[in-house]
Design a protein around this nucleic acid. Structure first.
Lengths: 219, 219
DNA sequence: TTGTTGTTTTAGATGTGTCTAAATTTTTAA
DNA sequence: TTAAAAATTTAGACACATCTAAAACAACAA
């Protein structure tokens, strides 16, 4: 089953949206994340549905079929391996690689991506802590929690992020809140839910509620 | 000046055609190398001409403008750097990389390609012996000759090829006629212009006239 | 100079992915 | 239960790159 550049982007977006929420994904959300209009989304959903890549009934939202999910995972595999390559081999910052990987993820060649995987030493996670799907379509399922889910006194290690915008990643870099850092929850300010965390060297850092939701940790 | 995927392919093809022959490139040749129809070529030529990427007058063929040649050279730079990467880092054969590089050459990012260049150690030639254009748009001009131009008794070193099809490259590989090999011209069979060459270890190899025209050497 | 041949261009159509504006359906609130 | 609001879909159009068939042009030989 061959999917076009655009079709791949739709499938990937729908995969991400169904991961982060309920089963059925709605038209407006898709239009929003793909920077397009709901009418265009409807057109594409009909097309993908005819190709049996997703289940679609008018007004009811969509879910991926197995072939559809498979294509999405292949694209995500490519995206994350290229990100790893760009950071580890070409020394890009973790905030610079997303747009490049959006292009590279559409290069068609199973052989290429498997050799890249091998060249990189079969990494398990990309530079943002996201798991890299294997060639056979399996993907580690995350049991990461956002910092905001920690109770006061609890400790964790930063292992991922939930938002990939350059601005957010640059902010984390500047605060030295990078993957692998151990932190513990100090307190939550009642007024605006600002979170105070402590790093290994006993430094206290205040982060906003929004930021705390987007930093993921293992316990 | 941004050119689309397809526009880039036209500019690259026209660049290659004007290298290998006279100045003006004709419509039918372009259609042939791009695997498309002359009518489509005409449409595109009008478009590229309006963008000032080439000089076009009806029925008179085309030549690239400076901006057009510049885009073509950037694409060729990317193509050849990616080919080098695929062969040197991912261990592809020199006969396997062309189609992949045709995809990779359209990734848009000057930063990416310059970092790749640096990662690869600023190579001067791609795996087929073609010179890699520099970021500033300069390119080494070849003074390679085909084997068929050697006189009997003359010696040369294989430095490039004029044809990139997998079949031809696999044939060379099998005969061990790879870049760097020293050969000398033994004789030309009068009957069908088959060329007999001798390798360093005194092995005699017969190659057809067509093949001899497509293997390039330095003296 | 004229006619033939081969090349090139125009005219009109198709497929993909997008859009706006209007209509329809679902959801929510009264 | 019904009306208003929100979400979704249809209808009709456009841009891009392509195609076929037919017309226009160039080059060459007689």
């Amino acid at each position: 089953m061959q999917a076009s550049f655009t079709e791949e982007n739709y499938l990937k977006a729908i995969y991400h949206l169904s991961e982060e929420g309920r089963q059925q994904v709605n038209t407006n959300r898709i239009a929003m994340v793909l920077n397009t209009k709901p009418a265009s989304v409807t057109d594409m959903l009909k097309k993908l549905s005819e190709k049996n890549l997703l289940n679609y009934t008018r007004y009811q939202g969509v879910s991926l079929t197995d072939p559809g999910r498979n294509i999405a995972l292949k694209v995500i595999r490519k995206h994350r391996l290229w990100e790893f390559f760009l950071v580890e081999k070409l020394n890009f910052g973790w905030d610079e690689v997303h747009d490049l990987a959006e292009q590279l993820e559409h290069i068609q060649s199973v052989e290429l991506i498997n050799r890249l995987d091998s060249f990189l030493g079969f990494p398990e996670y990309d530079p943002h802590g996201d798991p890299i799907p294997k060639d056979n379509g399996t993907i580690k399922c995350y049991d990461l929690k956002p910092i905001s889910a920690l109770h006061v006194g609890e400790t964790g290690t930063i292992a991922g992020v939930r938002e990939h915008s350059p601005l957010f990643l640059q902010y984390l870099e500047k605060m030295n809140l990078v993957i692998g850092k151990k932190i513990s929850m100090e307190e939550v300010i009642a007024y605006d839910e600002t979170v105070v965390i402590t790093t290994e060297n006993n430094q206290k850092i205040n982060i906003s509620k929004a930021a705390a939701k987007n930093i993921l940790i293992t316990i």
